Deep mutational scan, measured.
Amino acid sequence: TFVALYDYESRTETDLSFKKGERLQIVNNTEGDWWLAHSLTTGQTGYIPSNYVAP
């Protein structure tokens, strides 16, 4: 799992909003700078900017 370093507000319907400190499970990280992730807090799935999270 990864932890959010910053808050992120989604800009498209495929993005995932999250708050700093939220735990995220990475589903697919082969898309370059945008990873498909599942929030362990909200249960939602969407794309996140990879530079906003850390292991």
Rank of each mutant, 00 (worst) to 15 (best):
T1M: 13
T1C: 11
F2P: 00
F2M: 09
F2D: 00
V3K: 04
A4E: 00
A4H: 00
A4P: 01
A4W: 02
L5M: 09
L5D: 02
L5E: 04
L5A: 03
L5W: 04
L5R: 05
L5T: 04
L5P: 02
L5Y: 03
L5F: 03
Y6W: 13
Y6I: 07
Y6A: 10
Y6E: 07
D7N: 08
D7W: 03
D7L: 02
D7A: 06
D7T: 07
D7E: 05
Y8F: 10
Y8L: 03
Y8W: 10
Y8G: 01
Y8M: 03
Y8A: 01
E9R: 08
E9F: 12
S10R: 10
R11F: 10
R11H: 12
R11D: 10
R11Q: 14
R11M: 13
R11E: 13
R11I: 12
T12N: 15
T12M: 11
T12Y: 14
T12I: 10
T12S: 14
T14N: 14
T14Y: 15
T14A: 12
T14V: 11
T14M: 12
D15Q: 15
D15R: 11
D15W: 07
D15E: 15
D15V: 11
D15N: 11
L16E: 00
S17C: 06
S17K: 06
S17V: 04
S17P: 08
S17L: 03
S17W: 04
S17M: 04
K19S: 09
K19Y: 07
K19F: 09
K19G: 05
K19M: 09
K19N: 07
K20L: 06
K20I: 07
K20H: 05
K20Y: 06
G21Y: 06
G21F: 04
G21V: 00
G21P: 01
E22H: 07
E22I: 00
R23N: 13
R23Q: 15
R23A: 13
R23L: 15
R23W: 15
R23T: 15
L24K: 00
L24G: 00
L24A: 00
Q25R: 11
Q25H: 11
I26G: 02
V27F: 13
N28C: 09
N28F: 09
N28W: 11
N28V: 11
N28Q: 10
N29H: 11
N29L: 13
T30Y: 10
T30Q: 12
E31D: 15
E31S: 14
E31A: 14
E31T: 14
G32E: 12
G32P: 15
G32R: 13
G32F: 09
G32D: 13
D33S: 12
D33I: 11
D33F: 15
W34H: 08
W34L: 09
W34G: 04
W34N: 06
W34K: 13
W35E: 01
W35S: 03
W35G: 01
W35H: 04
W35C: 04
W35D: 00
L36E: 05
L36V: 07
L36Y: 12
A37N: 00
A37Y: 01
A37G: 05
A37R: 00
A37V: 14
H38F: 15
S39L: 05
S39M: 03
S39T: 02
S39W: 01
S39N: 14
L40E: 08
L40R: 04
T41V: 14
T41C: 09
T41Y: 10
T41N: 10
T42S: 12
T42F: 02
T42W: 02
T42N: 05
T42D: 03
G43E: 05
G43L: 07
G43A: 05
G43S: 05
G43F: 07
G43Q: 06
Q44M: 14
Q44I: 08
Q44F: 11
Q44A: 11
T45E: 08
T45P: 01
T45I: 13
T45F: 11
G46Y: 01
G46K: 01
G46P: 00
G46W: 01
Y47H: 06
Y47T: 05
Y47N: 05
Y47V: 05
Y47Q: 06
Y47C: 07
Y47M: 12
I48M: 03
I48V: 11
I48W: 00
I48C: 02
I48Y: 01
P49Q: 06
P49G: 03
P49R: 06
P49C: 07
S50V: 08
S50T: 06
S50D: 02
N51R: 13
Y52L: 12
Y52T: 06
Y52H: 09
V53H: 03
V53I: 09
V53Y: 04
V53T: 04
V53M: 07
A54D: 08
A54R: 11
P55V: 10
P55A: 11
P55S: 10
P55H: 10
P55M: 11
